[in-house]
Design a protein around this nucleic acid. Structure first.
Lengths: 301, 301
DNA sequence: CACGAAAACATTCAAATCATTCATTTTAAG
DNA sequence: CTTAAAATGAATGATTTGAATGTTTTCGTG
């Protein structure tokens, strides 16, 4: 589903002349593919990357295969979570989409959108539920909406080409799929070939996956721990397996209290998706540069 | 393995018009074989060479995803499930997508694609798992792939305009989201404004949802029953609430054995999604036509 | 084998895109 | 403020693309 756009379409979408856009293509600011007849074609993901990086205002989002945006041009992230809560509980999917995609088009890092809007919104919904101001079904329905938005967002990312591989999952009994899907998107944005295995996966099966795929990273979003001691034992066992294959074990999630963490072995812990992004970028640099240096010894920091 | 492709197939694969592709053939950019009747046939390797040489972005990767299949034969639904299983376990998302979308574009009803390809494929994966031929993580990963395909499919549907409203869910403890999502798509295809509440919803909250939204239908996909007597009691309670508001309660799913069903109260039971579709269409006609006829009394069947 | 629907053919034509040039606007430096 | 450099966007004629047309071929089915 790799949509291609003509220079005219992209030019119209960002409100700029066709001439300029073609010049930018030729300068390499936008990578294009060419038809056999020599016409330029721009992959949507590439157009979106350009828009986000150059901070261009998108005049016609529909031309970029994006859902229509809110005209309020809410490019500021501050009050978005509050609005998101209202629109989620009101079952207003379009408005929710608009909030997220406006921020995305405005160039906000996905990690920040997730931390400061989506995660926050669901925390607020959780609090509302505790105060009996929201029903369970409303929370679940909101999850469905968010899931669809995440899918949409994922499909708009530049597909990973030949990056490092990361596998991700949630532990057995943990059914919260939103956080682990957000992690996947963040890792892909950071240049990783992140592959989500799914929710509720036994530790033994995770170990099998590591042995069979030999990823550079294995990440775990932990939103709920059904059995604390089993979790600790399982994760430490997993860390053993991963260590032997040079797989970094990264953990995060609201269920990981300080108390639990002290009894765990892992390569990195991330409090937020922003942390995850930072860590992923660092690890990528190290891992990619590292091997090249082996045959040319240098002193290390 | 000298598979031949028609110009249309190659054109679709690289996202250009048939006209252009044929022109390129005639210009010699693609060498073709001709049938006795003068139709162009393009060898797969020639198409691949062209794609690589032109540095062309593959829009519809069917060509690369399933180099061994002929489109006409691929559209026959019989062997799709078997191929689907292989591609799912091989983590080959594009090939899976190709299978489903080929059928969809060929005009197969979604209900049939789901019953005879996706559901069947997962049943086969389940059997493989029982024989220790597949890992848990592979099954979960396959679920993720299927979820993404369903999302894609859903986004391709014409959004429901002003149809009758249906709410759907799975019961508390039942985390199988694939069947309930397929139901949603089927209902939407049948003209309903189907809204999936989500997975694992307590009966009390379902009742709240019915009271607040007053849908014409409430459907339940039951793939797993954690507590049989609680389920029976809960559903019968739900049926009471629904009856008062003229909401039809429709149930289905592999966990509903005959034994359980005899103790349940419901408006309809559907063994397959095909049944669901049929029932939804019937109910829609009745419900839409019904009110208009009230002032013109007739004898009923 | 014959039939009929779906696919492919050749051809035409309007619309889109190309490379290039040039006037105008914006930016930056003096 | 002036001026030069850089960026933008409109205009040009040639080329490419894709949709539409009516006819012919292919292929599964009876």
């Amino acid at each position: 589903m790799n949509q291609l756009l003509s220079p005219r379409q992209v030019a119209a979408a960002i409100g700029v002349s066709e001439s300029s856009l073609k010049r930018w293509c030729d300068q390499g600011l936008l990578s294009t593919v060419k038809t056999a007849g020599g016409h330029r074609r721009i992959p949507v993901q590439e157009a979106l990357r350009f828009v986000r990086e150059q901070n261009y205002a998108v005049v016609e989002p529909r031309l970029l295969a994006m859902p229509g945006t809110d005209n309020r041009k809410a490019r500021r992230i501050e009050n978005c979570a509050q609005r998101m809560v209202e629109e989620l509980l009101g079952n207003n999917e379009q408005a929710c989409q608009a909030i997220v995609f406006d921020l995305f088009l405005a160039g906000q890092p996905v990690s920040q959108i997730f931390d400061e809007v989506i995660s926050l919104a669901f925390r607020m919904i959780g609090e509302k539920w505790e105060r009996h101001e929201a029903e369970v079904y409303q929370e679940r329905c909101s999850c469905q909406i968010a899931l669809r938005i995440l899918h949409e967002l994922r499909s708009k990312q530049t597909p990973p080409d030949s990056g490092l591989v990361a596998l991700g999952a949630t532990i057995e009994g943990d059914q919260y799929s939103l956080p682990v899907m957000m992690s996947e998107i963040v890792l892909r944005a950071a240049g990783w070939d992140a592959r989500l295995l799914g929710s509720s996966i036994p530790f033994d099966s995770m170990a099998k996956a590591i042995q069979q795929h030999k990823p550079e990273m294995f990440w775990l979003s932990v939103s709920f721990v059904p059995d604390e001691s089993a979790f600790i034992a399982g994760l430490n066992r997993l860390f053993e397996v991963a260590s032997k294959l040079n797989t970094a074990v990264v953990i995060g999630g609201r269920a990981l209290t300080t108390e639990i963490r002290t009894r765990l072995r892992y390569s990195a812990f991330c409090d937020t998706l922003r942390h995850l992004e930072e860590f992923a970028k660092t690890l990528r640099r190290r891992t990619e540069v590292g091997p090249k240096k082996t045959h040319k010894p240098r002193k290390k920091g």
